[in-house]
């Protein structure tokens, strides 16, 4: 599979108002997305996953690093070039209600997208394409005349997806696309997303706090903590046999909808909270909460290393264990 998007040492700093301090929201994130692949990014609040997503579509300017779409650097694209970038890479937001114009029937909204990007021939061509887009996301053509408030949350998210698909993109950045939906509605949007990916050959960056959903849809999973990727690898090993103690804690914290399984999972909760990003700890960001912490962790930031084939983790302890295994 060829690489379609390559993120290289991406950083984002925010100045702290009223002081000369800086919050490092994203601290050197690198990853690649292959054609047809779904990369899941999972993490808790403040880990930098949404900031990363927004930088990928230039809703947020990167402080440093590069985002390569083919051989074009998105971070350096001019306004005109950005239009082409946005034809190839689109974003779907968590709250479809906030991202849709309440005064416009959804058909007209889609029509405008097509007009701006000159994507269909004439009014009739656009009308046909609108119908096609609605059908792709499982809505009848009659929905074109509906306003966002006349729709359910799941239907609105379908419209959000249709709008992203209108420009025939190669990549969708999905930022918590099902988190605001009712449980029984999440499943249908998840199924729609997997179906569209397979049918249209799309590549996804799927961002969520919900490890269960990320596990369900991803080919590879990246785990973020305080602005860094701390673990990255194939979906099943990252989610079921994680190497990093934070991923292990995250996995243990996610309740399983099975009382019998839960009864056998008496795990002590992770202590403490995510540190203040404006005042991060020395060494490893996770060291103040880590049950496996060693003296070195409080001094040196661990590197993201390939500890198993295609499975990377940034942890002194996990790296040490691998060395032991190799030498014994």
């Amino acid at each position: 599979m060829s690489t379609i998007l390559k993120v290289d040492d991406l950083t984002k700093d925010y100045p702290v108002r009223g002081s000369d301090r800086v919050v490092h929201a994203v601290k050197g994130v690198s990853f690649e997305l292959k054609r047809g692949e779904t990369l899941g990014i999972v993490g808790e609040s403040g880990c930098g996953k949404s900031t990363t997503a927004r930088m990928l579509v230039r809703l947020e300017e990167a402080t440093g690093g590069r985002i390569l779409l083919g051989d074009q650097d998105i971070t350096a694209a001019s306004r005109r070039e950005l239009r082409d970038v946005r034809r190839r890479i689109q974003m779907v937001f968590q709250d479809p209600y906030a991202s849709l114009n309440p005064r416009q029937p959804v058909g007209r909204m889609l029509d405008e997208v097509l007009k701006v990007h000159r994507l269909a021939e004439g009014a009739q061509g656009r009308q046909e394409r609108v119908r096609e887009l609605l059908s792709m996301v499982g809505l009848p053509a009659t929905y074109a005349s509906r306003y966002p408030h006349e729709m359910s949350g799941g239907q609105r998210q379908r419209i959000g997806i249709a709008r992203a698909l209108a420009v025939e993109p190669e990549i969708l950045i999905l930022d918590e696309p099902v988190s605001a939906l009712d449980v029984s509605v999440q499943a249908e949007v998840m199924n729609l997303l997997t179906g569209l990916r397979d049918r249209l050959g799309l590549s996804y960056v799927f961002i969520s706090h919900d490890l269960g959903m990320v596990r369900h849809i991803s080919d590879r999973i990246a785990v973020m903590y305080l602005g860094r990727i701390v673990e990255w690898g194939p979906w099943q090993t990252v989610s079921d046999e994680p190497l990093h103690p934070y991923t292990q804690a995250l996995q243990a914290a996610v309740p399983i909808a099975d009382p019998d399984a839960e009864a056998h999972r008496e795990v002590a909760p992770l202590r403490g909270e995510i540190p203040d990003p404006a005042n991060p700890p020395l060494g490893c960001d996770f060291s103040p909460r880590c049950p496996l912490v060693q003296p070195v962790c409080r001094e040196t930031e661990p590197e993201l290393l390939e500890l198993l084939p295609r499975h990377l983790a940034a942890c002194h302890v996990a790296a040490g264990r691998r060395t032991e295994r190799v030498s014994s």
Binding site: E188, M190, N191, T194, G212, D240, V254, A257
Partner: peptide, 20 residues
């Protein structure tokens, strides 16, 4: 409708049509 928490199979999620 909930994704399976373990295992290597990831079949499509069963869904409840419509909304509450």
């Amino acid at each position: 409708s909930i994704p399976r928490p373990t295992g290597s199979e990831r079949p499509p999620l069963r869904l409840i049509p419509g909304s509450p």
